[in-house]
């Protein structure tokens, strides 16, 4: 029993060490000669643009449902006019960044994990390595950077569509002019709401890309390991998103935002 405990602690340290080494390889290869711009753009398209419909629908429905759920209670307190403000602040500060990051973890991290895992299984990564090319630069750096760029952009998009969803929900029971609704919504949103939220999503993007690449690149042989890599990429990325969110809230509170 004691030995099992020792082995698992050793395994945890080994895994942590491997992740740190992988992270160093990523940062070192960002600044290497002959950066893969074309592949970065392709990955931004594959990872970001192709997630657009999913993120757009999610953002719209989150705003829509949140408004419908809040409306009766707000009416009870005679505070209907606060709905746009409440929805705007909630979506921008917390709900959209976390929900969109979790959705991206499901779509991007699993996709990256499965893609790199299958490349590993079919010896494509080794083929790249023995040809003298740099697989970390070509496969890993481009995917992590694409996630870092695209997750914040998708979150901003979801926030905008979330507000549109909220406006649609408000108009189910009566007419509210768009000017009034959006003026009220954005009058309560300050720079201190936008910046921490944006910075948080950059870290979410990094976590999604890094975990996906790490799990895929280090997957074992055999087709089963592709599924394992994709699955553990989603689980680990989701966990990291929650942890980063917890830390970010503490930091923003401490800084008074």
């Amino acid at each position: 029993m004691a030995q099992e405990g020792t082995l698992s602690i050793k395994g945890i340290f080994e895994e942590a060490g491997n992740q740190v080494l992988f992270m160093f390889r990523f940062f070192r290869n960002i600044f290497r000669f002959n950066f893969e711009w074309n592949e970065l753009i392709r990955q931004c398209y594959m990872i970001g643009y192709k997630s657009f419909p999913l993120v757009a629908i999610t953002g719209f429905i989150v705003g829509f449902v949140m408004t419908l759920q809040a409306e009766p209670t707000m009416k009870e307190f005679g505070a209907e006019s606060y709905i746009p403000r409440m929805v705007a602040v909630s979506l921008i500060r917390e709900i959209c960044p976390v929900i969109i990051a979790l959705i991206c973890a499901g779509k991007m991290a699993s996709g990256i994990g499965a893609e790199l895992g299958s490349m590993k299984v079919t010896e494509q990564v080794e083929a790249m390595e023995v040809s003298g090319a740099n697989p970390i630069q070509y496969l890993v750096v481009t995917r992590i950077l694409a996630c870092i760029f695209m997750v914040p952009l998708l979150t901003i998009l979801a926030e905008g569509l979330g507000m549109a969803g909220s406006y649609s929900a408000v108009n189910i029971s009566g007419h509210v002019s768009p000017t009034l609704f959006f003026n009220k919504a954005f009058s309560s949103v300050a720079f201190g709401d936008l910046l921490p939220s944006f910075i948080k999503t950059v870290f979410f993007g990094y976590a999604i890309g890094f975990v996906g690449c790490y799990k895929g690149y280090n997957s074992d042989r055999g087709t089963e390991s592709v599924g394992v890599a994709a699955n553990s990429a989603v689980v680990n990325a989701s966990l990291w998103i929650i942890v980063i969110d917890g830390i970010a809230v503490q930091i923003t509170n401490a800084l008074g935002y």
Binding site: T122, E123, Q124, V130, S131, N134
Partner: peptide, 20 residues
């Protein structure tokens, strides 16, 4: 090692073509 690998060709069992 990278310079050396350029001088060595390696044909994998599956061909290992980049399928994307």
């Amino acid at each position: 090692l990278k310079a050396l690998r350029v001088r060595i060709g390696f044909l994998f069992q599956s061909g290992a073509l980049y399928d994307s």
